[in-house]
Design a protein around this nucleic acid. Sequence first.
DNA 1: CCAATATATGACTATCAGTCATTAAAAAAA
DNA 2: TTTTTTTAATGACTGATAGTCATATATTGG
Lengths: 217, 217
Amino acid sequence: MATADRKEREKEQRKNVILDAAEKLFFSKGFDSVSMEEIAKEVELGKGTLYLYFKSKDSLFFAIISRKWIEFGKILTEKMSQGKTGFEKIQILIRWYIEYAQKNADYNDMATTFGPQLFQRIDAEDARMMMEVSMKYIPLVHAAVREGIEDGSVRNDLDPTLLGMYLQMITFNVVSPDPSMKNGFATQGISYDKYVEMLPKFLCPAVARFPEKECDN
Amino acid sequence: MATADRKEREKEQRKNVILDAAEKLFFSKGFDSVSMEEIAKEVELGKGTLYLYFKSKDSLFFAIISRKWIEFGKILTEKMSQGKTGFEKIQILIRWYIEYAQKNADYNDMATTFGPQLFQRIDAEDARMMMEVSMKYIPLVHAAVREGIEDGSVRNDLDPTLLGMYLQMITFNVVSPDPSMKNGFATQGISYDKYVEMLPKFLCPAVARFPEKECDN
DNA sequence: CCAATATATGACTATCAGTCATTAAAAAAA
DNA sequence: TTTTTTTAATGACTGATAGTCATATATTGG
């Protein structure tokens, strides 16, 4: 029956319209200062209707994150394939993630500010969904590390998965510092830009197999 | 007039009693699942009375964090003074911070889960208070880095303040991963304990002036 | 055209942070 | 000691808002 298909498509489209509106509002005012009523107004629907498409306000948040992660994973896959050695791939990952995060600063602010609390109370269904999404790009990092160990460009005295996790965590937190860290920049006389810019230099010796060779710059 | 002094002392004491109760509840149920009413019940006061001692629920949170940071800073000062070189002091900092955080896991969970959101909306008064507190230990880290650069144990190609900030951020985030990271451990087959335990090894080459000498272990 | 099904709605409930008029207790003055 | 003034404590109330649900509307298939 073709009707069911069409309805399915329409439902997806409307979900996206709702997500666009919610995203816009969350970015400008923060997750907790936007009410479901407000989002409903923006898309010209009743509040109750939103709950036909998303089971909770938290779910709306995760759907927004998920869209971004998917987009991110796609570009990352393409970019990293351009690196020759594992080490080069990791460098690309770091540099490009910085660029991407700066282009999506509003998204990043929202994610670091509200993510921890929302992930802490995430329900099983959303957790499964988010894990599935993250599975699209996390293995990329680990594969690059493994490749680098094999080709001799990356240090081999650490479990590759572990090294991948450190890199992921550090890059993420440098690019999107949580608000308490951000407050510290002014006080300590370091600009956020410099903090981000110098990251590759800081990390290099902790990643390279032969820092004296790979990290001259 | 002695009365005023006594009253002042009594007020401080009661503040602490309230903080103890709030802390206990926040640790066990999370900041947002504890109501002011509940805290008031616990200390056998009316809800309104709490507001004579703390201006908001958020302020209660910051007062709890602040108590911990002060305690932390005191012990840190003492521990770090035992290191010979700057590099040793940094090692002590990292190792001891890990130990401390593990001993205060419930505090750390609360801080990483709710901190970002609360710091984002912190008011000027609490911000000043928190900054003042953090000024007690942040300079310790930077001083150790500077000392290490001078005595040749720490790399000298990065701004010391910047290096201090990276170290602080990384150690903090490894020890207290935010909930979305924590979810990843199981999936990726790395235990949290290993993640924490291997940190010094991972970081060493990014800190030492001569990794081949300082990082053999 | 008419049942049956799917979609939309906003009034309603429950929860909770923060306020404030009122009461109670303590301190100061008489 | 008694009265006045100051300080502390209280909980009913307000406003905000996530999520529900009975009702209404629209769409579909027969």
